[in-house]
Design a protein around this nucleic acid. Structure first.
Lengths: 333, 333
DNA sequence: GAAGTCCATGAAATCGATTTCGTCAAGGAG
DNA sequence: CTCCTTGACGAAATCGATTTCATGGACTTC
């Protein structure tokens, strides 16, 4: 049947090192793990290990009951700078504690996510930080194996696990309010997929502010659901601009869609601040073009750091009830 | 000493499944691996496995001699869209062949790179695709364990391994030539660290064109080495603009530095096409601001796909001599 | 009905490092 | 000089799944 992974290789074992050093395997193991051995044995073992280019086989080591010093970080879109910044935060914290981080990209696909979650269990990773693809993500496998999990960015409705999120509703409200305060009259909203929690909350914040200023009747026509991607943002903005009574400003729920929206604006000769724009998350590599854009600072790196800190606690044995950490996300400029 | 990874967990073993199903462990294993068993046994085993939420322990499975269906992708900067696009390419190809991909970020740090290479060996990954942090990257561990490695973006001087690169020199030349052809007279160059191959080659291409048009004497003062990051690009461009006889155009060796350079230009009220700019690699999320910029298309995704294809060949047992695939990189617009 | 096949299945060996347990010798106390 | 402690270290069990090998029963075949 399937013959993947048959790359059998000749590896140097601890027994060969032991033989060459003239000691037992136990002694080699002790040297490797810093247990008490005579200086002479230690010297012999190290010399033999060096000579044979011996690398202990982690697979075997782990089988004896330990988990690896690797943390899995599962994100929905590796090409989104928000998630890479988050990854950076996780890495900083994890590395400081001696853990390595491996990234898995699900492309917003629940199947891929499930695969990676299985891998995390099967590989005995020390823990997993998950930015869920959608709100149906199933972490029961992890939980069943009592492996620590922390949800980040979006929370997991189904499961009772730690989570780190930002205050999306307040962010949305503050973004909209700041546009009204600056004098814009018709503030639209381009948000993400309706199945995604952050998209709903950011939109809800906007709606709260907008219905107060504009009157509820007009609000709905200024709302567009898109896909959190560049193309979706472009499309949504193009549609809004073709309304009989088009908006003069918009809250955009993530950075990628904002890039698309800016493109669409540019197509009709508009740009901030002539058209007001408030965006969730920084637009990387574009500081030159973003003058006049209001940015709701989504502290991606801090999110990652907080998630890693929580996870490390759990790995360390903390068994207290699940916590949710909410970071602030307020309009900045 | 170190008590990391002591998260001992209670796992359901194949023996418990066997006991519950009233068969032996061997039979359970056979069911799991599709070997011949009676329909009745199969039914019993599946029911028991289901009931106990049994997940086979990959660690144990692998110990028996197999490697995992996981490919490691080691990149120097996860926040650089070039590498994330490359990752996307690798993933596409790998997933199609049934492999999962885990990403490791070295932050251009050789130590971190070494750690991840060790992990790849120790975790018995099926193979590794490496975008080397610098030209001294040491893959001997992998080679010693005869685990397939493919270098991507930059080649490995020391080791005899497969590589996929782009024709950087030709790209640099073409970028510079196109600026001269458009009428710019003094074309500067902002390139990456001198220890990085791509930086040297891109610069070499520019130099070739520039010394022909400008005369060798003037070329060197228009060359700046930076760090492949935004801030470095900004700084380098700022310096160039303060020259007594400043350039009127520049070739910038990667996308991040270009963002910085655009910023620096903007600070003095310049922008393309008043100041000519040719950049290696796309500026993502900035299409609205990049009108007039010439882009040397570095086919990141294709690079990843080609690397994955090569690696999969090797994993499949191909033992032919090391190959180097060179993709084209020419000025586009 | 005896001899030979085939097949499902279980017992046990195996992968490589860790860890428990017991041994043996050196050193200290009485 | 004997008894006990202490410490280094080797033999063997262990982790969980795979795989080889042996066994016993069902089924053919002459």
């Amino acid at each position: 049947m399937d013959n993947r992974g048959l790359w059998k290789t000749r590896v140097v074992t601890i027994y060969e090192v032991a033989a060459r050093a003239g000691v037992s395997a136990s002694t080699v193991s002790r040297v490797l793990n810093g247990a008490k051995v005579s200086a002479e044995s230690e010297r012999l073992v190290r010399a033999a290990a060096e000579a044979l280019a011996f690398t202990p086989n982690r697979t075997a080591r782990r089988l004896r009951g330990h988990s690896s010093a690797v943390i899995g970080l599962i994100i929905p879109d590796i090409e989104n700078p928000f998630f890479t910044a988050l990854a950076r935060g996780v890495e900083n914290r994890a590395r400081a504690a001696g853990y390595s981080v491996v990234l898995c990209n699900t492309d917003e696909d629940p199947d891929r996510e499930a695969t990676y979650l299985d891998i995390a269990v099967a590989e005995h990773m020390a823990g997993v930080i998950l930015a869920p693809a959608d709100d149906a993500s199933d972490v029961s496998r992890l939980v069943a194996h009592s492996r620590p999990v922390v949800a980040v960015d979006r929370s997991l409705a189904r499961a009772d696990v730690d989570a780190v999120t930002v205050d999306n509703r307040a962010g949305g409200r503050s973004a909209a309010e700041s546009l009204f305060a600056a004098g814009y009259r018709r503030v639209a909203c381009i948000t993400g997929p309706s199945s995604v929690e952050t998209a709903q909350l950011r939109m809800a914040g906007w709606r709260q502010a907008a219905s107060r200023h504009t009157g509820s009747a007009y609000v709905e026509e200024l709302l567009r659901y898109a896909d959190y991607r560049v193309e979706g943002g472009r499309q949504a903005m193009a549609e809004l601009l073709e309304l009989p009574d088009p908006p003069d400003a918009a809250v955009v729920a993530n950075n990628l869609m904002a890039a698309g929206a800016l493109d669409a604006l540019d197509d009709v000769g508009l740009a901030p601040p002539a058209f007001g724009l408030a965006v969730f998350g920084d637009l990387p590599f574009a500081s030159f073009g973003r003058r006049g854009i209001r940015v709701v600072d989504v502290p991606a790196r801090e999110l990652g750091e907080a998630a890693a800190a929580l996870l490390l606690d759990r790995i360390g044995g903390d068994a207290s009830p699940a916590r949710t950490v909410v970071l602030r996300a307020l309009e900045q400029r």
